[in-house]
Design a protein around this nucleic acid. Structure first.
Lengths: 229, 229
DNA sequence: TTCATGGTTCGATCTTAACCGAACCATCAG
DNA sequence: CTGATGGTTCGGTTAAGATCGAACCATGAA
């Protein structure tokens, strides 16, 4: 009845199952057409169109029009962060009720959290980087150490390639399935890019799951252990 | 249409204006009776009761029954974090629409973000601590430096008094009004406690605003500058 | 015990908004 | 041009849930 931004407006938007499914599908940062999202949500084109225009109006989505295709994607990291925070809550609640649904083990093992790696392997990576001293505070921000850059260069991540925006290089992000932190920020994003580029894993076409190959996972773990080249 | 926790359930809960107002009112970590929350939300007792039982059932709230009073409070930090993330989104959207409502300047200057300080002064504090080297990474976690402890002791925060739980000592939290980071974690919580204890500020009885006295703010800023005791 | 107060439960009303059929608009291929 | 495809707009229907009056239950005071 007083101050603060109007939470309920956007929460209500996310609160509809159809829209929530659409947003969830977009959590991998890729863009989808209206038709794809309609199928994702299990509704007709008309209904989907209505939902999408609402999400667009609330700045939760961006739209790119290419020819007769309309591509929708999340408006930004903030949106992904809010969705992830909600998932954390939903997962706890569901834990008691639906017996910790092992619905999609692949998702819990590794998935894209917008632009960086989450799940068991995401948390593992963050822990290793911390204990291994890849990350430290230089001056006034959590950033990559000399050792860290050395290790990152081994998979092709260069200081020059990391965009010099106001975005922090390293950030932590709370993982809904693990309830522990994993690495976000521009470095987190670059690492996920390289995981794909190195062929260690590929995107699932349908979900946010990051599908590591057996060999890829082994090489990823070796990289984290600092062994080998 | 696939995996992941059911976001929409809890988002829908937060999506009702009455419930959102209740949750917002509880963001200062204090508990309120059902009646107080009913007034806060602008609904009758009956309606409030219905809302509260829903929030309770979804584990967003805890209830303490004392005599004939039922005290409700946020279930935990995760809930506060999710609400804060939603506020960030809502504030951006509202920025264009409602011309950055200076509704409550006191809230933007300083407020309690669950258990720690947010707003302009919260962000200022975090920046000062970072640039001043109060905070650094020791071993595997962002923590307080020797200098930092020295400064914290000056206002009565001792390593022994900070609970040794699994909760990180230092965490960052995205500020919805500033869109920058401020200090959370057990240290952030302890500092806010001391801000009250030192008499630098007092809680607003009605909102989350942290009301600094003129003198209190001056002393707080001096403390951050590291000047004098 | 009786009364007052704080909360919850029940039932009925009423508003909101999700949904789809149908029509319409734009792009692209022939 | 015609036909096909991808999206949006419009209208009417329908289902969900927020709301409150009234009754009910529990605690505490007299």
């Amino acid at each position: 009845m007083k101050e603060g931004p109007d939470i309920s407006r956007i929460a209500a938007l996310i609160g509809d199952p159809a829209r929530a499914n659409m947003l969830n599908a977009l959590m991998d940062k890729r863009a989808r057409t209206a038709g794809e999202l309609a199928e994702e949500a299990g509704v007709t084109k008309q209904t989907a169109s209505s939902h999408l225009s609402q999400l667009l109006g609330a700045d939760l989505l961006h739209r790119d029009v290419q020819g007769r295709h309309h591509y929708y994607r999340l408006a930004g990291r903030d949106v992904a962060a809010a969705l992830e925070a909600l998932m954390t809550l939903a997962d706890v609640g569901a834990g008691r009720r639906l017996r910790a649904g092992p619905k999609d083990p692949a998702m819990r093992k590794a998935r894209a959290c917008y632009d960086h790696l989450a799940g068991e392997l995401g948390v593992l990576m963050f822990d290793q980087m911390m204990t291994g001293g890849w990350i430290g505070t230089k001056a006034n921000a959590l950033s990559v150490s000399t050792l860290g850059w050395q290790r990152l260069k081994a998979i092709g991540i260069d200081p020059e390639h990391v965009p010099r925006s106001r975005r922090p290089q390293c950030r932590t992000c709370l993982d809904w399935s693990m309830r522990r932190y994993h690495l976000a920020g521009s470095i987190g994003s670059a690492v996920l890019d390289q995981i794909y580029a190195q062929g260690w894993a590929r995107r699932d076409t349908a979900s946010r799951a990051v599908l590591f190959t057996a060999n890829g996972e082994a090489r990823f773990r070796r990289w984290l252990d600092g062994a080998g080249r």
